[in-house]
């Protein structure tokens, strides 16, 4: 693979990939808009049972992780390996915090008997069944993306340690950063649609 690195090419590839990710979530956002317009009142009622505090904290956690991700890229651009390593580590840590909070939220709901196809959920109205269906599927798919992003960042951390990512070659870190920002952006839309519509 000694063809020389085409940084702009790699970036184009990554942006195209992110575009496909937007469309992947787009299908779910479409379902959300259809069902919300059909069952506006029930969505409103169901959203009141989600913990707004947990959602807000998680939004802050992810936004901060985006900041530290951006700082990690900025540091490696200036050749500051240690600075970048610290910020990458911080991003990974914040990603884990997000997942832990999400886990607690899900367990609380499942503890109340609210999960897809559960007898308690099926006893509720159609709108509430679909609201929680969308909640679990959309935050679940988002959570899966957070996990993939974390693995990518762990690889980047290892590459930075080994020196394969450095001030001269950092497009992979940049692309992982783009992915991470994308995952954040999705959450920025999920948060109001599920927690703030009461």
């Amino acid at each position: 693979m000694s063809r020389g690195q085409d940084t702009a090419g790699s970036r184009i590839g990554m942006w195209l990939f992110l575009f496909t990710e937007i469309l992947l979530f787009g299908g779910l956002f479409m379902l959300y808009s259809v069902f919300r317009s059909k069952y506006a009142v029930e969505f409103h009622r169901a959203a009141e049972d989600l913990s707004r505090t947990a959602g807000t904290i998680n939004t802050l956690v992810l936004l901060t992780s985006s900041l530290s991700m951006a700082l990690a890229v900025a540091a490696i651009r200036r050749g500051k390996k240690n600075g970048s390593l610290i910020f990458q580590g911080l991003t990974i840590l914040l990603g884990c915090v997000f997942l832990v909070i999400k886990y607690m939220e899900w367990s609380a709901k499942i503890g109340q008997g609210i999960y897809p196809d559960s007898p308690a959920l099926l006893g509720l109205s159609h709108g509430e069944i679909l609201f929680y269906g969308l909640y679990f599927v959309m935050t679940g798919l988002h959570g899966l993306h957070v996990v993939i992003g974390l693995w990518a960042l762990i690889f980047m951390l290892a590459s930075t340690l080994r020196g394969t990512i450095s001030g001269a070659r950092f497009v992979r870190l940049e692309n992982s950063g783009l992915y991470w920002h994308f995952v954040d952006t999705v959450w920025v839309y999920l948060f109001p649609l599920f927690y703030l519509i009461t």
């Binding site: 259809v34 069902f35 059909k38 069952y39 099926l122 159609h126 069944i129 269906g133 969308l134 599927v137």
Partner: peptide, 14 residues
């Protein structure tokens, strides 16, 4: 796998 119900009229889906 989970029977979410997006496409199932019995659960409000379509």
């Amino acid at each position: 796998l989970f029977g979410v119900g997006f496409f199932d009229p019995a659960k409000g889906g379509d």
